[in-house]
Computed example of a mutant assay.
Amino acid sequence: MLLRGLGVALVVAFALIIVVPLMIVLLASLKTTPQFIQDPLGWPESFSLANYTALFAKQPMLTYFGNSVFVTLFTVSGELLVAGMVAYGIIRTGRKTGGWMFGLFAAGLMVPSQVNMIPIYELVHRLGWSNSLAGLSLVTIAMLLPLSVFMLGGFMRTLPGELFEAGAIDGASEWRLLLRIALPLSAPYFAATACFLFVIVWNELLFPMLLLTGKDKLTLPLAMLQFRGEFVTDYPMLLTGVVVASIPIIAVFVLLQRFFISGAMAGSMKG
């Protein structure tokens, strides 16, 4: 009984840690700047959507939103395509060689992105990809490849090897085994990885700040910096932008929640 009560208390405490900051952000987006300065944590005097109206009226938020959607969809889809083929190749190469290859990609997780900023910037500049959303997407795909291969490779190792052996005996090529066996069985794993990647790419700030210079190419996280001045920061507008930018993440998780949970459970329960 004591352990059960302790568990409930921990769950409630964890929920409060998550919910309270979200409520503060949501309520702040409904305040005016004077109200926020006077009482940043209090209840708004009156509920008003003026900040949301002003956000889209004063800033080309639809352009920023479209840029983020393009970069995120391009990056996540390209990442899943490349990482899926690499992960399949690793599990089909053999235990020893595949283990070395998997370890090589896992080692890439230990290299911080900030270490590669200067050579990446130089390479992108020489390739003519500066201030390009497609160039930003390709760079992000390359930087996230170790993480994606690590996740998908770990998931695909749970697939029964007998299925591939039976398909090979029936004369199926590796491409056919990938398309007809590996990918359908790995759909929950790909959905779980897609959710994870979507959050990372949607909230990415470092590489957009490094590679994008034109105002018409800004992504949402980078556009939020416009509300931060040298001496004054418009926190209500900034937090309003945070709320708007969070809506797609919530929607994606709600749509893929079933696949995310099944993929996570499958990966954790397999021996």
Score class of each variant (00 low, 15 high):
E122R: 06
W129G: 01
A194R: 08
A107E: 09
I250A: 15
F190T: 03
T140M: 15
K58E: 05
M209F: 06
Q59R: 05
G108F: 00
V20L: 15
F150N: 09
S148D: 08
P44Q: 10
A134L: 15
M265I: 15
K96W: 12
A264N: 07
R126M: 08
P160M: 07
A28W: 07
A107H: 13
F190W: 09
F227S: 00
A187M: 09
G94K: 00
N67M: 03
A266F: 10
G108I: 02
P184N: 02
G161F: 00
L210P: 02
V232I: 11
R258H: 10
G135S: 08
V12L: 09
I18S: 13
L109S: 09
S29I: 01
T53P: 00
A83S: 11
R180Q: 05
M101F: 03
A28E: 03
F56L: 06
L41W: 14
Y235V: 11
I24F: 15
V201H: 06
G78K: 12
L2A: 06
E230K: 14
V20C: 15
M224G: 15
V69E: 12
L218T: 11
L3Y: 06
P188V: 05
V71N: 05
L41N: 12
T219D: 00
G78D: 13
F196N: 02
G161Y: 00
V8D: 13
T193L: 04
S137P: 04
P221D: 10
F102H: 07
I200V: 08
R92D: 05
L136W: 04
P160L: 08
A251R: 09
G263V: 03
L133W: 11
D39F: 10
S268L: 09
A57D: 03
D216L: 13
L211F: 12
I261E: 04
E230S: 10
R180G: 08
F198R: 04
Y235W: 12
G271T: 04
T75I: 03
N67Q: 08
F155Q: 02
L22S: 15
L3W: 12
L2W: 06
Q59C: 02
F196D: 09
M265F: 09
L206A: 08
V69A: 11
R258P: 04
Q257G: 09
F36Q: 06
G78C: 09
V232S: 07
S68Q: 10
M156Y: 03
L225Y: 00
F196L: 11
F70C: 03
F260P: 00
L27R: 15
G214T: 07
G84V: 05
L238H: 05
